[in-house]
Nucleic acid binder design. Structure first.
Length: 839
RNA sequence: GCGAAAGUGGCGGAAUUGGCAGACGCGCCAGACUUAGGAUCUGGUCCCGCAAGGGGUGGGGGUUCGAGUCCCCCCUUUCGCACCA
């Protein structure tokens, strides 16, 4: 029995029906299929905050359109999802409500999973992972120990970034403009702590080199990473402290300017400062001055362009190139953590030195002049440093050389004479991963009084995070107050020992999670080599740009370590990266404090997931920010309603008509109306196919789909009148539904079924467009006279250029503009335009 | 300050290779159907002008038969970097 389709579009009913059906049919389950081409679509895993937000919806709608397209193209598509489940918000909520973080986390995961499932994304839910379970985080510990064994994890006492809000340490990458990346209003302070670090600096060179492989990554992200790594070549030069006979090593990228050096600047925290103070004639004063400079240097973290400050130490340094003695100063702009913490001051050729030396009346000596400088005549006193490369003067024996030549020669000479060497400096520092919080992976280390630091043996992993821990958020590691956790016996000597009580930065969790998806339950190793071999690399990764130097650099680092350990055979895990824009409202980021948050679940309830997804793709191209507009989503809802009514109207009639989609329509048999409808259908198909392959402007794909619907509307009476046969109409509606299946899959499956098909659209092969059908047979060619549009002519495709010239000149309006003037030239752009130039 | 991207109707946006500027949608206007309309359908909608025509893609210049698109200068916005020696 055939029931007439309900002509009211009821998204709730349809979406529930199809989500159930998809699940029953295991439609999204992906398994290794040797010989079948695979495609791995990955979206950044969400933190389970309790509710999905529009940013997630956008991210996953983009990923799903691609995943569904690739499936229909015949690829074996892996499309997984999981939870970045450790982290501070759950711990803070736990403190506030006096309930364990695990409880919050798991209930939030439940809730968000339901919301995501309500969206109907094509995830293989069997592969879902949560990073906060021991089966997952034991491998964080395993990686940590592997790194420790290779000298890549080490403990160091150092000055670290501290967020007073988070009550924990932050990595350098997590400090943004001197504030916490999570609390943009909270200035980061400093603390001296013993911390665990991962030696990402050992990989700086490879992180840079391998960028060559990342040809499908946005330039912007690569530039940010390049800046962050901050490689610079230079020269280290040993000055001698004249009074103490001690070497003082400086780093410079401009050794060619060293004959213009009129002082040496030290960071206030430079290790030599203590010695200088001790040997000073007025140690108290120098100590106090050093303290002042240090404080001022610290302020520079938050304040930009802090005024230059400094103090003379009373000591002098000997320049090894010319034996000259110059004063040693402490300067607030010299960084401790970069280079050697000491620089030579060349005020004539470095703007900072110039400012400093001008302020403190230190001499300025020009040693570099522009290459084309004739060198004659008086020079006015400089008002700024000349920082470009040039040629050397007053730098005997190097005078006359270019900067490039001098840098090379002078570095070689320093090496030959033993007072310096060529060297490379990086801005990136090692990754501090210790966190003084509870809800994270315990660092698997044991401190034994007899044996020192001892890693937990692999067989004893995981070190399980104990439940029932009192959380205060007071800035000490909560685990330190759990004797059953802290007290351990030394794996080496069996004697009494203490466990490490800090937990790991959660960015460790997300540095390798996408490997785990390929075999999420494997218990013998973090990843299955076989599964990784098949599924990797990630073909397309999609997420926000905010992780450019955080997650996206850590993840690359981890992969390189994994390669060195022998877990994977490649250096880069992600072939192609796409960074989507934010969803904003009223011109700014959605936030509770601004009260401009649009809740996705409310939108699903009101419009259905398909409408929300369609709107996410239609409102803006995916790389741009999307300004949410309540009226705009109505349009998407209307469109889907219209599509539904249109297909429903013809469904009964077409259900048993044989589908000829993809089997070709013979051009010869078609009526003009059929020709027109099929032309549009295949044009839409062409546009969407080409766009999905490369350009990813889904907004134009949706627009084309709308144009097809408009064409169908216009031809509706022709269809009723029999000028369009049912099988032709069916082809067109099928194209419409299959294209829609990428963006609004539930309604698409419903309509596909109503057209007499059994299988879900995902299992349908993506139809190839027919170039002949898509081609226009008659063109409207605009005619310009002197570049101004004056008329249009209709010509058949293939009309000769000569005929086009004739027709154009014959056009009444065009003729008016040609009247009495001389034709200088006629430009015919085939298929496009004709321009008649007259005088 | 340095670097990058962007600037198009009332709004979101389109114009993929130098070739009809404003596709598609929102909003708005008018009409139809209707007891009703926040449903649906039809038509209109860059600006000036009755029209013919003219103007128009942040501003100014240039190249070209032809510029939103290429070049130069400037303005604005967003993002990244910001004492890295």
């Amino acid at each position: 029995m055939v029931l007439a389709m309900d002509t009211n579009y009821d998204p709730q009913q349809i979406e529930t029906k199809w989500q159930k059906r998809w699940q029953e049919e295991k439609l999204f389950d992906a398994d290794i299929a040797p010989g079948r081409k695979k495609y791995y679509v990955l979206e950044m895993l969400p933190y389970p905050s309790g509710d999905i937000h529009m940013g997630h919806v956008r991210n996953y709608s983009i990923g799903d359109a691609l995943a569904r397209y690739m499936s229909m193209k015949g690829y074996n598509v892996l499309h997984p999802i999981g939870w970045d489940a450790f982290g501070l918000p759950a711990e803070n909520a736990a403190i506030k409500h006096q309930r364990p973080p695990a409880e919050f986390t798991f209930s939030y995961i439940e809730r968000m999973r339901k919301q995501l499932q309500r969206l109907g994304i094509s995830y293989d839910w069997r592969r879902e992972i949560a990073t906060c379970v021991p089966e997952y985080y034991r491998w964080n510990q395993w990686f940590f120990i592997k790194m420790y064994e290779r000298g890549l994890a080490y403990r160091k006492h150092s000055r670290v970034n501290w967020c007073p809000e988070c009550q924990t340490v932050l990595a350098n990458e997590q400090v943004v403009d001197g504030c916490c990346w999570r609390h943009e209003e909270t200035p980061v302070t400093e603390k001296d702590l013993e911390q665990w670090f991962l030696k990402i600096t050992d990989y700086a060179e490879r992180l840079l080199d391998d960028m060559q492989e990342l040809v499908r990554w946005p330039e912007r992200v690569l530039t940010m990473q390049q800046n962050w790594i901050g490689k610079s070549r230079g020269t280290e030069v040993d000055f001698q402290i004249a009074e103490l006979g001690l070497p003082l090593r400086i780093f410079t990228t401009r050794v060619d300017t060293i004959f213009g050096c009129t002082a040496v600047f030290l960071a206030a925290e430079h290790p030599l400062v203590e010695k200088l103070t001790a040997a000073s004639k007025s140690p108290e004063r120098l100590r106090a001055d050093a303290e002042r400079i240090r404080n001022s240097a610290n302020r520079a973290r938050v304040e930009v362009n802090l005024e230059k400050d400094g103090v003379a130490t009373g000591f002098t340094a000997v320049n090894p190139y010319n034996g000259e003695q110059v004063p040693i100063w402490l300067a607030n702009f010299v960084l401790t953590g970069y280079g050697t913490g000491a620089v030579m001051a060349v005020p004539a050729h470095d703007q900072r030195d110039f400012e400093f030396c001008t302020t403190f009346n230190l001499p300025i000596r020009t040693v570099i002049v522009p290459v084309d400088d004739v060198g004659a005549g008086l020079k006015p006193a400089p008002t700024e440093a000349f920082v470009d490369y040039g040629k050397l003067v007053d730098s005997w024996p190097y005078s006359g050389l270019t900067s490039e030549q001098a840098i090379q020669r002078m570095t070689e000479d320093a090496e030959a004479k033993g007072f310096g060497k060529g060297t490379v400096q990086y801005r990136i520092k090692d990754w501090g991963i210790s966190r003084q919080r509870y809800w994270g992976t315990p660092i698997p280390m044991i401190y034994c009084e007899a044996c020192g630091i001892v890693p937990v043996p692999e067989k004893d992993l995981p070190v399980v995070l104990p439940a029932d821990v009192k959380l205060t958020g007071q800035g000490q590691s909560p685990l330190a107050r759990v004797p059953e956790f802290v007290n351990a016996s030394c794996p080496k000597c069996g004697g009494p020992a203490r466990r490490e009580t800090d937990t790991m930065d959660t960015f460790v969790d997300s540095s390798w999670y996408f490997y785990r998806y390929t075999d999420p339950k494997i218990a013998t190793a973090p990843v299955s080599k076989e599964a990784v071999e098949y599924w990797f690399p990630v073909d397309q990764y999609i997420g926000g740009i905010e992780h450019a130097i955080l997650h996206l650099i850590y993840m690359r680092f981890f992969t390189k370590v994994m390669k060195d350990i022998g877990l994977v055979s490649f250096s880069e895990p992600v072939a192609r990266l796409f960074t989507q824009g934010m969803v904003i409202k009223d011109g700014s980021k959605m936030s509770k404090s601004k009260g401009n948050v649009v809740d996705p679940t409310a939108m699903f309830a009101r419009y259905g997931a398909d409408t929300v997804r369609l709107y996410m793709l239609f409102a803006a191209p995916p790389e741009k920010d999307l300004d949410w507009n309540d009226a705009g989503i109505e349009g998407s809802a209307r469109f889907l309603g219209k599509v539904y009514r249109m297909v429903a109207k013809h469904a009964d009639e077409l259900r048993f008509v044989e589908s000829v989609l993809g089997k070709g329509n013979s051009l010869a048999d078609l009526t003009a109306e059929e020709r027109r409808l099929l032309r549009k259908s295949h044009q839409v198909l062409r546009h969407v196919t080409e766009d999905m392959e490369e350009r990813w402007h889904f907004n134009t794909d949706v627009a084309m789909t709308m144009e097809l619907v408009n064409e169908l509307t216009e031809l509706d009476s022709a269809a009723s009148a029999g000028q369009i046969r049912p099988e032709t109409l069916k082809v067109s509606l099928e194209v419409l539904v299959l294209v829609l299946a990428l963006f609004a899959p539930h309604i698409a499956d419903e309509l596909w079924e109503s057209l007499g098909h059994r299988e879900p659209t995902l299992r349908v092969q993506w139809p190839a467009y027919d170039p002949e059908l898509a081609a226009e047979e008659e063109l409207e060619i605009p005619v310009q006279v002197n570049g101004k549009l004056r008329g249009r002519i209709r010509v058949a495709v293939g009309t000769s250029e000569e005929d086009i010239r004739q027709l154009a000149q014959a056009d009444e309006k065009v003729a008016q503009h040609l009247d009495g003037r001389k034709i200088v030239k006629i430009i015919v752009v085939p298929q496009k335009l004709i321009n008649i130039v007259v005088k």
